[in-house]
Amino acid sequence: MSVYDKLKQLGITLPPVATPAAAYVPFVRTGNLVFISGHTAKRDGKPWVGQLGKTMTTEEGKTAARSVAIDLMGTLHAAVGDLNNVRRIVKVMSLVNSSPDFTEHHLVTNGASELLGQLFGDRGAHARSAFGVAQIPTGSCVEIELIAEVG
C-alpha cells in the first residue's frame, strides 16, 4: 500500500508548505538527505498554544505532535514530489514547551513517531530526541524537525 493510500485511509489531507516565519527555508536537500525545518503545532490554522504539565495534558500534547507530523509530511512531499520515494525517516527532534517538572516529553513525541510508523512501516522507524524547553515561537506547545533519506 502506498503512503498516499495510508494517508487516505487515515483521513489525512496533506497541507501546503507553510511560509517561513523568519530567515530560513522550509527544507534543504543535500544528496539523498532532506532536512525539514522545525514545524510548530497548529490547531485550526493558528498556533496551538500551551505548556505541557501546566495548561496541557500529555494526551493533548501527543495529539499536537501528531498534527505537526502531518504538516511535516506536507513539506516532505513538496521537497521530494512523492512520499513513496522516502527510503527512511532518519531522525526526529522534538521540542516540547513544558513546565520544569514535566517529564513525559517522550510520550508527547510519540504522537509524531507513531504516525510516521503508520505511514512508512519499518522505513518510519527513526532515531529521536525529545526535549523540554521553556518556550517555543508563538507560544506553540510542540515543535518538531525531521531528517529523511530519499531515493
Rank of each mutant, 00 (worst) to 15 (best):
L95I: 09
E104V: 08
L115E: 00
T109L: 02
R128A: 08
H105N: 14
T103N: 14
H126V: 04
V108D: 02
A112P: 03
D71N: 13
A134R: 05
F131N: 06
R88K: 13
D101K: 06
G74L: 12
R87M: 15
P100H: 12
A112L: 09
S98K: 15
F131Q: 04
V90M: 05
A134M: 08
L76Y: 11
M93C: 06
V92G: 11
A79R: 06
R66H: 00
I89A: 05
L107R: 12
S67K: 12
M73V: 06
L72H: 01
N85L: 13
M73F: 05
N110Q: 14
G121C: 05
L119I: 04
T109P: 03
R88W: 02
A127T: 11
V86C: 09
H77D: 14
H77P: 02
V92W: 10
A79W: 04
V68R: 00
Q118E: 10
G117P: 05
L76D: 05
G132W: 15
S94V: 10
A79C: 00
A69M: 02
N84W: 14
L83G: 14
H105F: 14
Q135L: 13
F120N: 00
F131P: 01
G74S: 04
N97K: 10
G117K: 11
H106Q: 03
R87A: 11
H106I: 14
V96R: 09
R123F: 01
H105D: 08
